[in-house]
């Protein structure tokens, strides 16, 4: 059987998911031997490209250049796999799509930055068909290696679908949300990280994106009950831009619309 043709690509992001691949120091050479690596420009200057079987794409679409590249990759790939939270959910750069891009540009680059081209930040699935999503900021090494192993056998991998909360309970960590009253997103965030942050006495900030059908309303009710500032709840939910807009809708459903932290702070002042 011919080795599967693989491409590894990065749109706008921190390159953490490509680095996570390079961080498989013990497995990297074996993985590469099992595939026909057609593109990985972060690691190689020989990138023949062409038709490929599986494209791994990290990063989010932040500019037209990203979108063009993504469509081009999609057009010659049998499977397209989004790797990392930016590719799957939008990531930190998508946290404030409510702010006008021109205003952000002006704020960071001043008037001479007008040449910069910028789009509201979106995950890959908003623009093209994504066949599999491996989230994480960055992706977990084990999940990556298991996924590659499944793909080499001709299967799509089974990924964790339970929340960080479950993982946290299995490790018997003290509950940061209920016991210590901290703003933890463990109940609505997809596990696969072995509840790393609660294990370090740190709340889950949701870096792996939400589980399927997250009960955000219940989480938010709990946080409100514990007296958390409305701004901080919205900010927390939006940090990795998980479906922030949808979650925010659930929060503000019965109250005056309040789409962003800025609006929230204005509303409070009024």
């Amino acid at each position: 059987m011919a080795k599967p043709r693989i491409g590894i690509y990065g749109l706008t992001g921190c390159a953490g998911d490509q680095l996570a691949i390079l961080n498989c120091e013990d497995e990297l050479l074996d993985i590469v031997n099992a595939v026909d690596l057609r593109s990985f420009s972060m690691a190689s200057s020989s990138n023949p490209e062409g038709e490929i079987d599986v494209a791994f794409v990290e990063g989010a679409v932040c500019q037209q250049r990203d979108l063009d590249e993504l469509k081009e990759i999609r057009s010659r790939s049998k499977l397209l796999i989004a790797i990392g939270t930016c590719a799957v959910w939008g990531g930190v750069a998508a946290a404030r799509n409510d702010i006008d891009r021109e205003k952000l540009k002006e704020k960071v680059y001043g008037p001479s930055g007008s040449f910069l081209e910028s789009l509201p930040v979106k995950p890959l699935g908003e623009h093209v068909k994504v066949d599999l999503a491996i989230s994480g900021c960055p992706i977990e090494k084990e999940e990556l290696i298991n996924s590659v192993a499944s793909l080499l056998r001709g299967d799509l991998p089974l990924l964790v679908s339970f929340p960080v909360c479950t993982s946290c309970k299995m490790h018997e960590y003290e509950c940061l949300l209920v016991k210590r009253g901290q703003l933890c997103l463990g109940p609505i965030t997809r596990a696969g990280c072995e509840a790393r942050c609660p294990g370090l006495n740190r709340v889950c900030r949701g870096c792996r994106g939400p589980v399927d059908e997250p009960n955000a309303a219940s989480e938010v009710a709990l946080l409100k009950e514990r007296g958390f500032d409305r701004r901080d709840i919205i900010n927390a939910l939006a940090t990795f831009a998980a479906p922030a807009e949808k979650l925010a809708e659930q929060i503000v459903g019965k109250e005056p619309a309040c789409q962003s932290a800025q609006d929230a702070s204005q509303a409070e002042k009024e």
Binding site: T12, A93, L104, K105, S118, A261
Partner: peptide, 19 residues
């Protein structure tokens, strides 16, 4: 330099110091 701008300095405006 063709990498997209994420404007991260702009995005942390309004965030609490510990975030």
């Amino acid at each position: 330099i063709l990498e997209g701008a994420r404007f991260l300095e702009g995005l942390v405006g309004g965030r609490r110091f510990d975030e």
